[in-house]
Amino acid sequence: MHLLPKFDFYEPDSMAEACKVLAETKTEGKIIAGGTDIMVNMKKGLLSPKYLVSLAKIPGVSSIEPITGGIVIGPNLIVAKLIEFDLMRKKFNLLSKAASVLGSPLIRNRATIGGNIVTARPAADLPPPLMAMGARVVLMRKGKERELPLDDFFVGPGQTKIKPTEILVKIIVDDPPPFTGWDYVKLMHRNALEIAIVAVAVRITLDSPDGIIKDARVILSAVAAKAIHAVSAEKILIGEKPTAKLFARAASLASTDCTPITDIRGGAEYRCAMVETLTNRALSAALLQIKSK
C-alpha cells in the first residue's frame, strides 16, 4: 500500500471561502476534485501539497445550468454525468462521446470536468471536444472572476494560465449553431482504461444544409505539448464545400500541424499518420451528422 504524504484538508462551503483558504496556503495548497490524478501523483511521490482544498461542499459546483445560448458546467461535475444527462447527450453529445471513453466507469464516477481541464495532460479527453465547441473557462481569485477561451488556457504539459491561488469555477459552452456536426475519435491500445495514443475532435458548421463550411475546428490531442488546433486544416476547410477529397486534404494537412513525441504510448511517426486517419474519419462523421439531422 502506498501512503499519501501528510496534508491538511479543507472543505469550504463557498467559492469565496475557497479562494480565501487557497490564498492563505500561499502556493502550497492544491484543489482536490475527483482526486483521480492528484492522488496518483501524490502516491507516486511526484506531488506533496501541504493543503488540499475540496470544492465538493460548494453549492452549484457539480451541476449543469442552461443559460441563454448555452450551458454553464460546474468544475466539480463528474465525468459520468456528461454522459448521463439528457441535455448533454442530445445537444452536446461531442462532450458525452469523449467522456464515455475516459478511463473506466469507476474513474468516470470520480474524475471531474474541472480536474480533466486543470491538470492539463496533453492527452486529456475533455479539452479537445471543449475546444472544438469553443468553450470558455471562468477563473476566480480573491473573489474576482476572469474569463478565458479554453484555446488560450493551456501552456504545456501540466501547465496552464491558472495562477497558483486561482480556482476554475465555471466552464461555459455555447449552443452549437445550426448545421453543425462534430465527432471525437480516440485511438487506444485497449478499449478501456486508456489514455489516448492520438485523439481528434472536429466540429464543422455549414452555412446551409447543402452549403459550404462556415466554421471548422480540428483539435488534435496527444500529439503536442497540449491539445492544439490543426490550423492549416481548419483554414483549408473554411469556405469550401464539404467533400471526401477536401477532407482528405485537410486530414493530410493536419498531420503536418502536429509535433508529437515518441513516448511510452506511441511513436512520433505513427502518431502523425494517425492524426491523418482520425481527422479524416472525424470530419466524415461530422458531415454525416449534419446530413442525418
Binding site: L4, F9, I32, G34, G35, T36, M39, V40, L52, I78, A80, G103, S104, P105, L106, I107, N109, R110, L193
Partner: peptide, 21 residues
Amino acid sequence: GDCGACTVILDDRPVNSCLVL
C-alpha cells in the same frame, strides 16, 4: 485506480476507493 479491486459503491456509484480520501 487502475485495477478496480478496491471498488465500493459510494452514493450509488461504484468508485475506486483507493482514490477517495
